[in-house]
Amino acid sequence: MIITEIDLTRLGFECQYTWDNFGDDDYYFTMEFGGINGLCLITNCKNDSPDATDGWIVEFFNNSDTKSIKDLELLEEFIYIMNKIQMQ
């Protein structure tokens, strides 16, 4: 199941509008778990439209790589487990 902008809003992502190096009007949503000490998730679509029909990709970072989630159910499970870790 692809991730839509409505899903991201429902899951608590906050919209930030940014410019990238190429001057395209990319949209980014960011969500942080636990404030500045938490894990940062970044979603983006690969074209200029926030209504991308092929879904959105959620990426999170660690020291050496980017991981991506494109499936809504997997994203919801990941957010659920991250919230549980934060609340320990």
Partner: peptide
């Protein structure tokens, strides 16, 4: 586990 700016802990 670590990401670029933080550590999270799992004890359970």
């Amino acid at each position: 586990f670590t990401d670029m700016g933080s550590m999270e802990f799992i004890e359970d």
